[in-house]
Design a protein around this nucleic acid. Structure first.
Lengths: 306, 306
DNA sequence: TAAAAATACTCCATAGGTATTTTAT
DNA sequence: ATAAAATACCTATGGAGTATTTTTA
């Protein structure tokens, strides 16, 4: 059986008239008659009871007509779906992110994607370190990444979307919590809770900032993630330097303070330079153009046109 | 898009190898390559990323493969279903019945159909009088009928499947309930509850039996159905003559008694002589052969081989 | 360099056209 | 008598074959 036959059959079933059905199909009547006979012979059963005056479905034809509507509709939606996936308007987007991006940038991003590309399903791969994201982007098991530059290895394109200062996290009753202006050197004698993972870009930034300020932080404890790091700070085991996005974690017993010369850390959108799937390109466009819009709006004087 | 293309595509998607897929499809490799190129150009998008060393699905191809499995499975079940409906092994059977057949013969019949033709769906059209069933059999909106012979009009074939005596229905405390041998003439002075419908075959049989016994029953009340008739008898409004099948209705306050010379009434299976759908023929065969088996068993001496 | 897909071409099966016949109302 | 499906026959598109070339791991 072929879809051509099924389409012809469905049209004849709907009109119960070979001539009019042929017309609707932009086809000559004998060609249609022949096609239906062919289908009947393929199936080994009559689908129509026909005289020259009347065409009616047999029970088998009745059954096939119901099925044909389902099948033809499924084919149409499949074709439309393929086109959507091919253009990036639909399909699955696998988005990787570093720990802190989950609370700071993710919610708005997902909202923008849902608004601009409603047929795209977003699959979140949270708490992925930058090198892991780069590997998975290259091997094609991730479509986009939110990571800390620089990207490791070849073939990854990035665009910085935000620059955050490192801020101080201290226990609520710590003496630094009350200090008005904090400089990095003020932390040189403090015990630090540091990110334990060698691949952590935030850890690198913290160590580099301290080195620039002329000291090596005293490694009191190690934490595998920002939330654990803050928990250890809350427990009074030390102080920490974390990206500003960590403010939104708002752990009880921890307060955050600016550090004048603590340096910054970037967050970037990353994708595979080649072999980027259409959804990735489409979502990237939407996210980056949204970013540009926001920056433009921020650069304009407040109180502009509504 | 054609099913041929979809079948080819699914095979390539499964093997990720044009040569092996072509082999599986009993096709030369260039023909398959060409067919896939054709499909890709129809859809306006690539379905495979191919080098001479590696074939992999694109996101659009991935999507189409999932859809193709659904569609191809639907096509296969549709074709199988058409064959079943065409042979009568499947489909919808619309079965008409007179009121009393619902409790007497229907349950066993449905059980036999379910056992022998599990893919046949039975639609019951209960409480249909004989002439109405004949009309609907002729116009093709009913497939089989359980009715009281003779059938009215042309084109209806019937086979008698049971002969029931008419029995007496009386209130529990009626004097006839205690009488050992009842003859029709004993009822000549009694008030009767009769079937009200002019088309009722049971009513005809009752009136004819009484006429043969030399009297016209005194029409005290009329009932549209056997169950209502028995309810009126229970209420003490008169006596009734009903088919033996009515025993299974077992209304409280009503007792049934044999009447020696009350005559019999037949129940028959009926179908349209021409234009009988396959499912009707198949079910009829099953029911009638079951009937023959039962009669053979009944005619043999009891305690035969297991 | 070798395996595998693409290209080039050839052929014929069949989808679809026109002209005509058959059939049932 | 006539509308409509079936039949007969013809044409040409395109599906599938063989031989060959191109490509990349």
């Amino acid at each position: 059986m072929e879809l051509r036959q099924l389409r012809y059959f469905a049209t004849v079933a709907e009109t119960c008239h070979f001539g009019r059905a042929a017309e609707r199909l932009h086809l000559a009547q004998p060609a249609l008659s022949h096609a239906i006979r062919q289908l009947e012979s393929d199936l080994g059963t009559a689908l129509f009871n026909r005289t020259t005056r009347h065409v009616a479905l047999t029970p088998a034809g009745e059954f096939l007509y119901e099925q044909s509507r389902t099948i033809l509709a499924a084919v149409d939606t499949a074709v439309a779906g393929v086109r959507r996936v091919a253009t990036g308007l639909g399909g699955l987007l696998r988005l990787g992110l570093v720990g802190t991006a989950a609370t700071s940038h993710l919610p708005r991003m997902v909202r923008v994607i849902k608004r601009e590309l409603p047929d795209v399903a977003v699959e979140i791969h949270a708490d992925m370190l930058t090198p892991a994201q780069c590997d998975r982007l290259r091997e094609g098991t991730l479509d986009l990444g939110l990571l800390r530059p620089p990207a490791t290895g070849e073939g990854i394109a990035i665009r910085t979307i935000d620059t955050e200062p490192l801020i101080l996290a201290v226990p609520r009753d710590h003496h630094l919590a009350a200090q008005p202006r904090i400089k990095l050197v003020d932390l040189r004698t403090e015990p630090f809770v540091l990110y334990g993972n060698r691949d952590s870009a935030v850890n690198d930034a913290v160590l580099q900032s301290c080195r620039a300020a002329g000291f090596v932080p005293h490694r009191e404890h190690e934490a595998p993630s920002t939330s654990v790091l803050l928990a250890l700070v809350a427990a009074g085991l030390g102080i920490g330097l974390v990206p500003e996005a960590a403010r939104s974690l708002a752990l009880d017993g921890v307060v955050h303070r600016e550090v004048i010369d603590a340096g910054h850390i970037e967050l970037a959108l990353a994708w595979a330079e080649d072999s980027e799937p259409p959804v990735a390109a489409a979502v990237r466009d939407v996210l980056l153009s949204q970013l540009d819009t926001d920056q433009l709006a921020a650069s304009l004087p407040a109180g502009g046109a509504a």
